[in-house]
Amino acid sequence: MTASAIRLTGVSRRFGRTTALDDVTAEVPAGVVCGLLGRNGAGKTTLMSILAGHDRPSAGTVEVLGSDPFEHADVMGSISLIRDNQRYPEDFKLKHVLRVVPRFHERWDAELAAELIDAFRLPSRTTVKKMSRGQQSGLGIVIGLASRAPLTVFDEPYLGLDATARRVFADRLLAARLDDAAARTIVLSTHLIDEMEQLLDHVVVLDGGRLVRTGTTEEVTAGAHSLSGAAAAVERVAAGRTPLSSHRVGGLLSLVFAGEAPAGLAEEAAAAGVQVAPVGLQELVAAFGAGDGAEVRAEREGAAA
């Protein structure tokens, strides 16, 4: 049986009248790369803050590496969370960061850090504050990967990275997963889902603060299908079913539905000239984020019934 690195039960976080997270229950197994996916404002950063012990839920319980992370010295010492807008002391340069970080992460890999710094071409004379967006993302990746922290959390690590740097990150992430599979769980949020999908073992999809899907990447993508073709034909085949999203271009229509395609749909669709296809992770996440949440709630209630 696989142990959970993260266990969330009914987690909510409210800021005044705004509900950033609403009753989220999910588990992430140890030793996986987990994608935290959803639109801007879905609650990803709030959830990461709670996972890292930077914030506390308004309701519900959080277990990370077996304990509530908030002010738990052993657990917090096992977590690295570099934010997309991470603040550093204004006068800090690369050398200051490298001088400090190993003191916080006992498993710091200086060789890997040096290799990544070269690969990302991080400047040594510029203060971190004056680094470009991509260079700051690169620095965050250096800290996160070289920390070898048992739970490493990346908040939008791809922001501003060029294609070469993104490839370096993907390669090193894969290597980290293989090298540290027994001891390391990596959670990352990203909007470049197509590019990351192959690296994600597990996903947690949020929309409007609510959990809409979680499970292995295969389980989640298997739980949806699409219909596409001439609009009239697609609407006829889809009659009576509520899609998660619809996308119309001219006379063509594409609908995404939750759940596996019902029996007989393939034959009916083929007869009508409509294509039934599996849905990629990016398309599914975009579908969940396309509506006002009503379809998601209806789908969730239907699934629970």
Partner: peptide
């Protein structure tokens, strides 16, 4: 598969 915790960050590191 289990994940071990690491040494906590100390005031000296701060």
């Amino acid at each position: 598969m289990s994940t071990t915790v690491a040494r906590p960050a100390s005031p000296v590191a701060v």
